[in-house]
Design a binder for these strands. Sequence first.
DNA 1: CGCACAGTTGAGACTCATCAAACCACGTGG
DNA 2: CCACGTGGTTTGATGAGTCTCAACTGTGCG
Lengths: 247, 247
Amino acid sequence: MSLPDVLPLQPAYYNPQARVCAECRVRRFALFGALDEAALERIHGHIAELRLAPGESLYRMQEAGLAAYTVRAGVVRLERTNERGERRILRLAGRSDTIGMEAMLGQSYAADAVACTEVQVCCLPRSLLDELANDQPALMRDMMKRWQRALDDADEWLTELCTGPARRRVLRLLLKLSEFAEHDGEPVWLPARQEMSAMLDMTVETASRLISQLKREGVLTAHSQRSATLHMDALLQALRDSAQDEA
Amino acid sequence: MSLPDVLPLQPAYYNPQARVCAECRVRRFALFGALDEAALERIHGHIAELRLAPGESLYRMQEAGLAAYTVRAGVVRLERTNERGERRILRLAGRSDTIGMEAMLGQSYAADAVACTEVQVCCLPRSLLDELANDQPALMRDMMKRWQRALDDADEWLTELCTGPARRRVLRLLLKLSEFAEHDGEPVWLPARQEMSAMLDMTVETASRLISQLKREGVLTAHSQRSATLHMDALLQALRDSAQDEA
DNA sequence: CGCACAGTTGAGACTCATCAAACCACGTGG
DNA sequence: CCACGTGGTTTGATGAGTCTCAACTGTGCG
């Protein structure tokens, strides 16, 4: 979760944040990956780092959007609560995902954004879009790719986690959680049952039953309430099996 | 479906398509709503009209994307078919929605796009994004708003049509279909039961049962297989009721 | 230690899927 | 024009999967 990477020393930066950006681990994925150091300097002051503890919220639905955020570490969930107080988790965002882009268009946020784990984000202020359009029009394309990525994620979430029997949905969720791990084999963040139920549209009891069952089957091993190791071979096999018995 | 609107006469257009754009009914919603006639002239040749019959497909998933499309009339569905041949409808696009924008970023299409009704679309070629970036950078913001709108639609689809008991999902689908009608009280396009099942993740039988039941309850009256009149007061009341019995 | 809250497990009810059959709309060919 | 076939729709009977309600267990914290 810390940023220990030491890059080769860069020329001195006038602004400390520019240095952070230059050294950022996710830089190659990030919006400014294509920028050289001089350009980074120009947009320096606009970007701020932010850290959140699990459960803290980054912004709330319908708030006036002040900034978009790129996730540098951790997992953030986007969720909505409808009139009747039912919560639905729309999707998860991990490293190098950008959320809250509606703010850049002057719109209010379309969902709540809440930290699932410890989280670090870069704050991209509302004005950034205008600055980019003036100074670095070539980056507008990167910006649009981010929108497209969010759309792809939304579509994938819908097709993977909203269809089929409960067991398969849980398995696919675990697969998705494995994408957020830093390395293979590393413990993954395990959502609370209530969160699972809001992601997969099932009850907490069903989520609990299925997770317990998968533990017994050796698909995962929990280390604490919020952390578990996935056994990918067993997980993938279980997914194949659950596809089999359709036929 | 025709374009009878007669606008005050404009100066003669060099290009017939520019005239079509200028007179387009959806112009105020559309990408070029903000352009004056001179600017329209400049991008004239890039835009082509296209008509589709119900069931015809506009593009297919993984095809190399040649163009994005703005829907001028009719309803288009975006759908995916997974490895096992199960189809899932991701969302519907109606007048003034833009689909297939991934093509403008050089990506292949992320889903199939199929006409549900008779459809008219404007074809926005892949090169348009570059042209705009050069000639009309101010329009890039409009373009991004389109991405954001697609994202909002995706989120709404997930929260409205993928949650709760089957009956409520059907009711919400009907509500959404009413948005695609030209005027209030006009017959709406009624999906085939198989399409409903792919939208709402249920079986055709369940969809059929619920639609029949709603007919008996006077929520809708079918005129033909693919067309019905919705009785909005009854529909909205039914939705309120289905919310009630949660408590 | 004991409290509060999350997770687990069980029993029964209910929704929805499955399988099967009848019905209807529509196009084709006699 | 009607008989017929095809494919979508409706309806019924049954069972699997999931929800609901309830009790119990485990975890973390004061």
